[in-house]
């Protein structure tokens, strides 16, 4: 056995160590980890994140700059439990980035609407940041974010900041008195969005499978054509490289062909 550094570079299964710069608590079970990074990233891409000995998991990049990237991680098992024990100055292991991500060109000068349910806000957060900082590149921009309850609200500090620049419609399934926001499922609020100029509108829908399914139906009802709807899929991705097969849906490999799809292309596909 030998450390073959030169080969390591070509081995796509090896990860690189990244220091945790800062940790932000989002909810009781979700934390955002800011890590040092020199990855070249696109909005909505994901990384394979690991701690040797505890496994690897696909996690979407929830924000990034040239110096750092953020991962918003929910505590759901062996690996993520362990990650939540880490502190600033500790390391995570990363490889990637994987997937196509959101191509901003598709939304350039359009009326962009992003509907995100729960953790679905993480993969679009970097895109929202970019859009918010470049509103002149869009004709209109609006975000609809839904959460189960006040306790599962993510990126609270960002949302406050975003609201100074563009409309963010926030809803929680159950009553919440914190912000005095609307109550109810995302689907109930879709009609309130700025959908006057449908021909020039692009809609991004990200979230748990049922939320995506019913939100899309709502947008369709309001006349948004399938090819102006964009989705991002979450699957069990073991390799990120189009090899392991876990993410395959029909002839699509979500890890390399997705996770972002134009809905018109994937509306028929079935797991």
């Amino acid at each position: 056995m030998s450390l073959t550094a030169e080969k390591s570079l070509k081995n796509p299964y090896l990860s690189q160590k990244a220091e945790i710069l800062e940790i932000f608590q989002e909810t009781e079970i979700e934390y955002t980890f800011r890590l040092e990074s020199d990855f070249e990233l696109n909005f909505g891409q994901f990384l394979e994140v690991s701690i040797p000995g505890y496994g690897e998991a696909p996690i979407s990049v929830s924000n990034f700059t040239d110096q750092w990237l953020e991962l918003t991680i929910r505590k759901v098992g062996k690996l993520t439990d362990r990650i939540h024990d880490l502190e600033e100055g500790d390391y995570l292991y990363l490889r990637g980035p994987y997937g196509n991500g959101f191509d901003f060109e598709n939304y350039q000068d359009k009326n962009l609407i992003i509907a995100a349910g729960g953790t679905g806000l993480a993969p679009v957060r970097s895109l929202i940041e970019y859009a918010g900082n470049n509103l002149d590149q869009l004709s209109d921009f609006e975000v609809l974010a839904g959460f189960k309850d006040a306790g599962s609200l993510l990126f609270e500090r960002d949302i406050k900041r975003w609201r100074q620049k563009f409309d963010v419609l926030l809803t929680v399934d159950k009553t919440c008195d914190i912000w005095g926001e609307c109550v109810g499922l995302i689907t109930e609020h879709i009609a309130e969005l700025h959908l006057e100029n449908i021909a020039n509108t692009e809609v991004i829908v990200v979230g748990p499978p049922p939320m995506m399914k019913y939100s899309i139906i709502e947008f369709q009802k309001l006349g948004v054509p399938d090819d102006q709807i964009w989705v991002s899929y979450e699957r069990k991705m073991h390799c990120g490289l189009g090899k392991c097969g876990h993410c395959k849906i029909e002839d699509n490999y979500v890890c390399i062909d997705g996770p972002v799809y134009n809905y018109a292309e994937v509306k028929e596909i079935r797991d």
């Binding site: 505890y54 690897e56 073991h238 390799c239 090899k243 097969g245």
Partner: peptide
Amino acid sequence: CSCFTVKDVLYDENKK
């Protein structure tokens, strides 16, 4: 069939 799963194990003696 070419599908596979990736897993980690720790050797008992030394958790590192």
